[in-house]
Design a protein around this nucleic acid. Structure first.
Lengths: 172, 172
DNA sequence: TATTGTTATACTCTATAACTATA
DNA sequence: TATAGTTATAGAGTATAACAATA
C-alpha cells in the first residue's frame, strides 16, 4: 500500500544520536532520569498531585512532627519551595501546621487522617510508574539496577546512603 | 576531640528521605539523572561549552552533511533550540552552514577542522565526567549498569535502541 | 545578631507559535 | 499549501534575596 521513495530506503534519515553518546553511561542516565521524571510528573498530575507532595507526606508518616526546615533538608528541597507545597497540602486538609510552643518561630507539621489516605493513593501511583518504566526488565535485572543506583546514590548524595545509621546499633 | 551533644546521638536530625522513596527505582533514577546532568553541565561549562554542543559536533562527525532538521530529530532537540546552538558553534568556526543548492530552504551543516579538534576536547570532558561519576563502581558493575540503562533506553526511546539498524544488512 | 518561615524578584528553560523564504 | 529555518513570546520552574516575627 505505502509506496516508499527509493532514496529514503537507501539513506534512512539517521534519526539516531551518535554512537559515542550511547556509549556514555552519563548520557543514558541523564536521558532516562529525565524520561522517568516526565512520566512520574504526568502520573502524579493525573491524580492531582506532584511527586513533591508524595515525598512530603511519606516523610511525615515516618517522622510525625517535623519542622519545615527538617522536612526541606531531608528531601533536599529549598525551604521556600516547601512553603507552597505545604500550603497546597494544608488547603486540602492533608497536613496540619501549628506553631511550636517551645519556639514560636517554628511550625510543627503533621499528617492528618485524610493525608494518610492520600498517601496510600500516591503509593499506588508510584508503584504504577515503577512497574511501567521498569517492566521491560526481569526481576533480577530490576533488583540489580536498583542496587547499583543505590550504591551510586550513597556515594554522591550521602544523605541517600543506606544503613549509615542502623535503627539498632550493632553493639546493642 | 569532638564532643557530641547526647541529644543529637539519640535523635539525629533525620536529614534523610523516607525509606519508601529509596525503595523506588524511579526515585533513584530521577535523582541520579539530575545529579549527573548537573555535573556534566558544570564540566562542559568550564570548557566553554554545553553537552548540547558536544552532541551536535559528535553527530556531525558521524554524518557529515546533515540538515538542521535531521540533526534536531536525531538528538531529540527542538528545531528552534538547535538554531542557537549552531549560531554559537558557527561563530567560533566549529561548524559551517551553507544552503543546499537542491533545496534552498535547507541548510547543510558540516564540521570544520577546528570543530573536529574541539570535539576531541569535549570527548575528554565527557570521559572525565563518566569516570568521576561512576568511579565508585568497579568495572563489572559499571558495565552492568550501562547494559541495563541501554536496555531500558531502547525500550523507552526507540531511537536509542542499538543495532536496530545494522551497518550491513544481514542479507548482504 | 541569628534563625524560621514567608514573600518577592530575577533568571533560566522550555514550549509554542508567528514569520520568511523557498518549494 | 506545505516545509526549513528563524525569531518572538509567554509560561513554568528555580534560585536568590529581601522581609517579619521570634529567639
Amino acid at each position: 500500500m505505502a509506496i516508499v521513495d527509493p532514496r529514503l530506503r537507501l539513506k534512512p534519515p539517521a534519526a539516531r544520536p551518535p554512537k559515542e553518546l550511547l556509549e556514555s553511561t552519563s548520557f543514558l542516565l541523564k536521558r532516562l532520569g529525565w524520561a522517568v521524571r516526565d512520566r512520574a510528573m504526568d502520573a502524579y498530575e493525573e491524580a492531582g498531585f506532584s511527586p513533591y507532595h508524595h515525598a512530603v507526606l511519606a516523610l511525615l508518616e515516618e517522622e510525625p512532627r517535623e519542622t519545615q526546615a527538617t522536612i526541606a533538608d531531608a528531601l533536599g528541597y529549598d525551604r521556600s519551595h516547601l512553603v507552597g507545597l505545604l500550603d497546597e497540602l494544608e488547603d486540602r486538609g492533608l497536613v496540619e501546621r501549628r506553631r511550636d510552643p517551645a519556639d514560636r518561630r517554628r511550625h510543627l507539621v503533621k499528617l492528618t487522617p485524610d493525608g494518610k489516605r492520600a498517601l496510600g493513593r500516591l503509593r499506588t501511583v508510584a508503584k504504577r510508574v515503577d512497574d511501567d518504566f521498569f517492566g521491560s526488565l526481569d526481576n533480577d535485572q530490576r533488583a540489580a539496577l536498583h542496587d547499583l543506583l543505590l550504591t551510586l546514590a550513597g556515594f554522591h548524595e550521602p544523605q541517600l546512603a543506606v544503613s549509615a545509621e542502623p535503627d539498632v546499633p550493632p553493639s546493642a
